[in-house]
Design a protein around this nucleic acid. Structure first.
Length: 595
RNA sequence: GCCCCCGUAGCUCAGUGGAUAGAGCGACGGUUUCCUAAACCGUAGGUCGCAGGUUCGAUCCCUGCCGGGGGUACCA
């Protein structure tokens, strides 16, 4: 909030240059790298001096002089000193102003975060697993990032519509259908249908792909492949029969769908992820022929080599194919129909697609086609993310060729957390509490490990790193929250009374001041997250905030402080706990009272 | 071939046109009569792939090169 104020002040006539230059120059207010340089630094004098033909330090001195004279400046900031170095303008927030900001946030249910002035309707398309496949670690990124962005944008005041665009109509069903007809285990299906369908999928995929190294590792698949050399083609035929309305396959699809959905629902519940809609590919199936007809009629699409495609960059560049030579529709066709449907029914200002960056080109083409098609004025954004890699630098797979199941990952995370709970000697916790802590901490660690990465870069998957519970992990923030709760319960503190008395906030120790400076940045961090759709900016700030709290906690007593210091520090604890809890909540990560 | 992304500490990764490039893990050393040690404090460790260019200032922007990954007409 202080950076914004400073920019505002500078805009009020401090910098006398051409108005075109102002926005760029105002960006040049930043947090100081080192506390000894004050809280915020202005770097505009250096760049400006060149153009004005003056010495940077002289110009900086002049800016400082004018800044002080602007009304409102003195309420928020200490008088700036002389320019430093080549012409830095270093500014320090007045302790009183900082304390007042903390006081205001303590009293505010929204913790000092105002809702946006112009709310938008934003559709977020994320997770989108193929329902016939078991979910694996590769699914976690889209699911977790999309969920976090949805929560953050909602909190910022936007109208958010989440939609899980399920893959419920593709080749994977052909595999299950083929498997069902050739090698089903009725007893296993009766006992645990999802497990049996999962087994069929994994088995048939190997048979259909017929990769020698995979078959070598799986005798059952190898035997089937030997008996059915045409399995790959037959799988596609099963898919085609489903699409053409074949009664048997359609019936099986209707039988399998609830089973598949129940499977992924269980994972979503455990991850605490929910959707407003789950309109899968099958939902848009009836519209696809119309999409192709429209695009042909509009002259955007044309036939080529028997297929129909939209040629966006001339005949030489690969087109966006919307109908195959055999008449089947494609991924792109469904995506176009989906955009059309969403615009008509939801009228969004923005649609975010949380999808692996390898599909960047696909989305470029789909978006460009949608624009030329005249679907409407909407921001279509591919929020791409990097691939999860294995130790070998290739997309993640275990040695056997399978990826690690998402459920197994969650189980392992919870189990490791349970072990730490036991080791930590939390003897006073009952069994139910221990389980709840383990679940919250274990799942939180996994989500945080993903969210704290820059989403655009690939990352190497590591069980140990993902399930780590010390250092820069969710547990670190959860632990800080538990410490706040510990203070309040041990001291029998009435939180409401603390908030009512928060006018007494005093920031005397360096640790208190550092904590307060981080606390008042919540709003701008969320703004930055939205601007680039980057949740890792929020994790980085939360980690910084929790770190400042840990230093504060270790060096300054709260309950044993006397008089004003006690109530002031209680207010800081209360706000820190709430901000951390809420911030983690925006990431879809829970907290516990004790751990 | 063309297009996109990446190359930062032993490992995994942040980061930014600005003042001594950061964190975690790992290593080494310290902290518990005191509100939770899942913590805190400290030490060691870097020619930010290489070479040019733009700039008052480049790890960041531009060009070239080297290395890795991905995409590239009928999968999603």
């Amino acid at each position: 909030m202080f950076a914004t104020a400073l920019e505002g002040l500078a805009a009020d006539g401090v910098i006398a240059v051409g108005p075109d230059d102002l926005p760029g120059l105002l960006q040049q207010v930043r947090e100081s790298a080192d506390p000894k340089h004050g809280d915020y630094s202005g770097t505009m004098a250096m760049g400006l001096a060149k153009r004005a033909g003056r010495k940077p330090r002289d110009l900086a001195a002049e800016i400082i002089g004018r800044l002080e004279a602007v009304s409102g400046y003195a309420d928020l900031f200490e008088p700036p000193g002389d320019p430093v170095g080549p012409g830095f303008i270093n500014v320090r927030v007045r302790d009183q102003a900082l304390a007042a900001a903390v006081t205001a946030a303590v009293a505010d249910e929204r913790l000092g975060v105002a809702a946006v002035a112009e709310p938008r309707t934003v559709v977020i398309d994320f997770s989108s697993p193929n329902v016939a496949k078991p979910m694996h670690v590769g699914h976690i990124r889209s699911t977790v990032i999309g969920d976090a962005l949805a929560r953050i944008l909602r909190f910022r005041g936007h109208e958010v519509i989440t939609d899980n665009h399920l893959g419920d109509w593709g080749t994977q069903f052909g595999m299950i259908l083929w498997g069902w007809k050739h090698c089903r285990d009725e007893a296993a299906y009766a006992a645990d249908p999802t497990a049996e369908l999962g087994r069929l999928y994994r088995l048939v995929r190997k048979v259909a792909d017929a990769k020698p190294e995979e078959l070598a590792a799986d005798p059952e698949a190898a035997a089937l492949a030997a008996d059915h050399p045409e399995a790959g083609r037959e799988v596609l035929a099963e898919t085609a029969r489903l699409h053409s309305g074949d009664a048997e396959n359609r019936g099986l699809w209707e039988q399998f769908m609830p089973v598949c959905l129940a499977e992924i629902e269980r994972l979503y519940r455990r991850l605490d992820v929910s959707f407003d809609h789950q309109l899968g590919e099958s939902f848009f199936q009836p519209m696809l022929a119309g999409v192709v007809e429209d695009l042909l009629a509009a002259g955007l699409a044309q036939e080529s080599r028997g297929a129909v495609g939209v040629f966006l960059d001339g005949e030489e560049e690969p087109p966006l194919l919307i109908r195959k030579a055999d008449g089947a529709f494609l991924y792109a066709t469904t995506d176009l129909a989906t955009i059309q449907w969403r615009l008509e029914h939801w009228r969004p200002d923005r649609i975010l697609y949380i999808v692996d960056h390898r599909q960047g080109r696909h989305f470029e083409q789909v978006f460009e086609t949608a624009r030329r098609w005249g679907l409407g004025d909407v921001d279509l954004v591919h929020v791409g993310f990097g691939t999860v890699l294995g130790d070998d630098g290739r997309p993640f797979k275990t040695r056997a060729g399978d990826t690690v199941g998402l459920e197994a990952l969650l189980d392992e995370g919870v189990e490791r957390a349970a072990r730490v709970v036991a080791e930590a000697g939390r003897g006073e916790m009952d069994e139910a509490m221990r389980r709840r802590v383990a679940e919250t901490v274990g799942i939180g660690a996994i989500k945080y490990a993903d969210l704290s990465q820059n989403r655009t870069t690939d990352y190497v998957f590591s069980f140990d790193k993902m399930l780590q519970l010390t250092g820069n992990t969710a547990a670190y923030m959860q632990y800080a929250v538990a410490r706040v709760e510990g203070i309040c319960s041990k001291g029998r503190i009435d939180r409401e009374a603390v908030r009512a008395a928060a006018g007494c906030v005093r920031l005397e120790a360096a640790q208190e001041r550092a904590l307060a400076l981080a606390l008042v940045r919540f709003a701008e961090v969320l703004e930055d997250v939205e601007a680039d759709n980057r949740p890792n900016l929020l994790t980085a700030w939360l980690y910084d905030l929790a770190g400042r709290y840990s230093s504060f906690y270790d060096s300054l007593p709260v309950l044993k402080a006397t008089g004003d210091a006690c109530s002031s520090r209680l207010a800081l604890c209360d706000l820190t706990g709430r901000v951390l809890r809420h911030g983690l909540g925006l990431l879809g990560i829970g907290t516990v009272e004790r751990m």
